[in-house]
Design a protein around this nucleic acid. Structure first.
Lengths: 140, 140
DNA sequence: ATATCTGCAAAGACTTTGCATGAGA
DNA sequence: TCTCATGCAAAGTCTTTGCAGATAT
């Protein structure tokens, strides 16, 4: 946070805590509600600004599961213990974090990133993998 | 289209053509502009409704690259010739379709899908892979 | 004939922005 | 001190919905 010329404020602390405490893939609204407990006066706009900042700094990652609401979670690089991918139910929007096959996936992704970077001249920063389908409950 | 109790109308034809003619990953607005040529009276709402329908029927696929605008393209299953994944520039939002490594990726994805389906009880319908980074122009 | 589609306009949902005030370093 | 951050409210985007009229089959 600091070290980028940025200040550590109560609001930012609250947002960070919200991402840390409450599981994963929170919407801005959810972060707002959670952060409001620690910092009652925080505004939704600040939450958005903070999430945007954290995403830009690589502290958080932002993604979309198909319901037009952005989701955020603490960033965990491919090598981190908590690195996972998402399995999304297209009906109830439930999100399952999975780590199965993560090692193979990560290995292939690394190789692919390298190849793409060379071929297309991109500097690749992150990847996104999601599977979509129906969860057990919604299949009924 | 038919066979689901649905009617083939000029508007739907125009949307389908738009997806087919103009490359890939079009926004609703882009589809609308394109479809307007063939069907001048088409409304944006109809475009949205049609894209939603086609996505539900599996004719089109919908995804998001991080700029809050949904994108659509004709669906090409994992086995189809045109199946590809996306490389997205986080700065200018350019999207590169790539097919490199597709075979390995598809193979791993198939395996992963199978494993996830079994473990979590999902019926998996589709997957999404994206790489994000800076394109050559934006790196400068 | 009739259930489905359509365009339009209005509403809705999510996110961003402007601005004066407040507060970290 | 002085730049950066905040809250509020207003504005902006993208998308969905209500409805009366039009249309495929």
């Amino acid at each position: 946070m600091r070290g980028h010329g940025r200040r550590m404020t109560p609001a930012r602390h609250a947002v960070l805590d919200a991402l840390g405490e409450r599981g994963e893939h929170l919407t801005a609204e959810e972060v707002f509600r959670s952060a409001s407990r620690r910092c009652p006066d925080i505004g939704l706009a600040t939450v958005y600004r903070t999430l945007e900042l954290m995403t830009r700094l690589g502290v958080a990652s932002k993604f979309d599961t198909g319901d037009e609401k952005a989701r955020y979670e603490l960033a965990e690089g491919p090598k981190a213990k908590g690195h996972h991918h998402h399995l999304v139910c297209t009906s109830c929007r439930r999100i399952v974090d999975y780590k199965d096959f993560i090692k193979e996936e990560t290995e292939l992704l690394r190789k692919t990133e390298e190849g793409l970077a060379k071929k297309y001249g991109f500097r690749i920063d992150s990847h996104l993998i999601q599977f979509h389908g129906l969860c057990p409950d919604c299949r009924k």
